[in-house]
């Protein structure tokens, strides 16, 4: 393992973030919009559908998951540009392994994506949406672990796609057939138990669903799926995606 090169690549992402915080935090507009509009709009109708009856509370973990999904995928997909016209080539001619590049990039992008998630978490705390009982270090730590796993998994997935895609034309396809279904089936807005069987099957193979269930366990104290199963499923997905991305980066020629 080349820790210093991984650290270097991570550091670059952090430096970029520090120079342009507004642009990164702009990624929050969408999730906050969803949170407020869906929360108030559907809250009344859904109060008897979700456990405990507080709809805003129910969707907050999902909104955090959604913010992580989108920022992670976007930041990884930008590598398509970097590969042709930019910085990726600079990394590819350095005497470091492709695996280190992938891990550094995953950790760097995941860190900046998580900062978005943390802002949403703080909103949840400040506005009293997260129950007081969950405001303890252990629960917050569990939430951060799930956030890191969600972010890093989807950065790795985005990197794997970027390694395979030669142009931005494939991007629409990725959005329509991958990101949106993953988002909608993850149970952000409704308990997946309410879905008909054939959609439930799809929800069960949606990795984001496990992430959001894990966050629900951490932040609300209840979840539909056991946190251990959620953690296990996410860890497997995470390892798999990093392995696939590293493999595709090795095969990639610039």
């Amino acid at each position: 393992m080349e820790f210093s090169s991984i650290y270097t690549i991570w550091l670059r992402e952090i430096k970029r973030f520090m120079k342009d915080k507004t642009r990164y935090l702009g990624g929050l507009i969408n999730p906050i919009g969803y949170f407020v509009i869906m929360g108030f709009g559907l809250g009344g109708a859904f109060s008897d559908v979700v456990e405990g009856g507080n709809y805003m509370q129910f969707i907050l973990p999902g909104i955090i998951g959604m913010a992580l999904l989108f920022t992670s995928i976007f930041s990884a997909i930008s590598v398509i540009f970097e590969r042709q016209f930019g910085f990726l080539k600079e990394m590819l001619v350095a005497p470091i392994s492709r695996t280190s590049i992938v891990i550094g990039k995953v950790l760097g992008s995941a860190t900046t994506a998580m900062l978005n998630g943390v802002v949403l978490l703080l909103i949840g705390i400040v506005f009293g949406i997260i129950p007081a009982a969950q405001l303890n270090p252990v629960s917050i730590l569990i939430a951060l672990v799930f956030m890191l796993l969600i972010a890093s998994s989807f950065v790795a997935l985005g990197l794997a796609l970027a390694a395979k895609m030669n142009s931005m034309e494939g991007f629409q396809f990725v959005m329509g057939f991958l990101v949106m279904p993953v988002f909608l089936l993850s149970g952000v807005f409704f308990p997946i138990a309410n879905l008909p069987d054939f959609l439930q099957v799809l929800a069960y193979i949606d990795p984001l669903m496990y992430g959001i269930e894990g966050l629900r366990y951490a932040l609300l104290g209840t979840s539909f799926i056991s946190p251990f199963i959620a953690l296990g499923a996410l860890l497997i997905f995470n390892g798999l995606m990093i392995a696939v991305a590293a493999r595709l980066f090795k095969k990639m020629s610039a």
Binding site: S4, K15, R16, F85, G86, A94, P95, I96
Partner: peptide, 23 residues
């Protein structure tokens, strides 16, 4: 052929990044 600098970083930071990658 195409610029492979990080536009957001300074000239020094670009150089420094390179030096780190080369150990």
């Amino acid at each position: 052929q195409d610029y492979s600098l990080d536009d957001e970083l300074t000239g020094f930071e670009n150089m420094d990044f390179h030096g780190r990658l080369f150990g």
